[in-house]
């Protein structure tokens, strides 16, 4: 089954389960103040303030959406400009190249009728930006991923319902499974689990 990855069982994380967002935030703060960096939390709804505690920030999406929007706008105007004029500025740039567009005089309007070309360009701006936002979010989140090592934890079955799970991941430089386990137990969790994986993470 090896795909060039080491699939021997390895520790992935230690997870603790809580029953409220407040308890999760409190626990995350304590764990953070003990110097752990590679943390994550799993919750049925967004818990505000959590990403500040685990020191996670990611603004890439905004830039991706902006780039897509600009692309959509240029694509929209470019398409209409080309197809309505063949980029013919009085010269014969694309004559007989197959790129000469469909330049026709319609009601005496200028070939490059830029005000009339605004609505399609506007819609394409929104369309591409929305693609950027949706698929950008999915891609940056590493989805789709039907199975993730943390799902080996029993408490994850309710992390989409009414449980709030804090994880310290094994990639943390200070990670020592027993130490983390002890620390987690001091936070009044409902349960603490050691999560192992064979997925070659």
């Amino acid at each position: 089954m090896s795909h060039g990855r080491d699939t021997s069982p390895k520790p992935y994380a230690v997870v603790a389960e809580f029953d409220s967002p407040e308890a999760l935030l409190e626990a995350a703060k304590t764990v953070r103040s003990n110097g752990y960096r590679d943390m994550d939390a799993y919750s049925p709804m967004p818990v505000h303030g959590l990403t500040d505690i685990i020191d996670f920030k990611d603004d890439k999406l905004g830039f991706v959406v902006f780039a897509h929007g600009v692309m959509g706008f240029l694509l929209g105007y470019g398409l209409q400009w080309w197809t309505s004029t063949g980029f013919n500025f009085g010269g014969t740039w694309f004559q007989n190249t197959g790129l000469n567009g469909y330049a026709h005089n319609v009601g005496g309007k200028p070939l490059f009728s830029y005000p009339a070309f605004f609505p399609p360009a506007y819609e394409l701006t929104i369309l591409l930006a929305a693609f950027g936002a949706t698929f950008g979010m999915i891609a940056f989140n590493g989805l789709p991923k039907p199975h993730h090592p943390v799902m080996n934890a029993a408490c994850m079955a309710r992390a989409s319902a009414d449980r709030f799970v804090l994880a310290v991941e094994a990639t943390d430089p200070r990670y020592d499974e027993d130490e983390v386990f002890e620390l987690m137990n001091t936070l009044n969790p409902l349960s603490v689990e050691r999560v192992w994986t064979e997925e070659g993470y």
Binding site: T51, I54, K57, D58, I126, A130, T134, N141, P146
Partner: peptide
């Protein structure tokens, strides 16, 4: 399959909320 393997990670929620607000901002105009 439809959930794409969503696991409710805090990091995912962060980007998710960002994406939601952007989509709302795009849908309004």
């Amino acid at each position: 399959m439809l959930s794409l393997g969503w696991r409710g990670s805090a990091k995912h929620w962060h980007r998710y909320e960002h994406a939601s607000i952007i989509l709302a901002g795009l849908s309004t105009p």
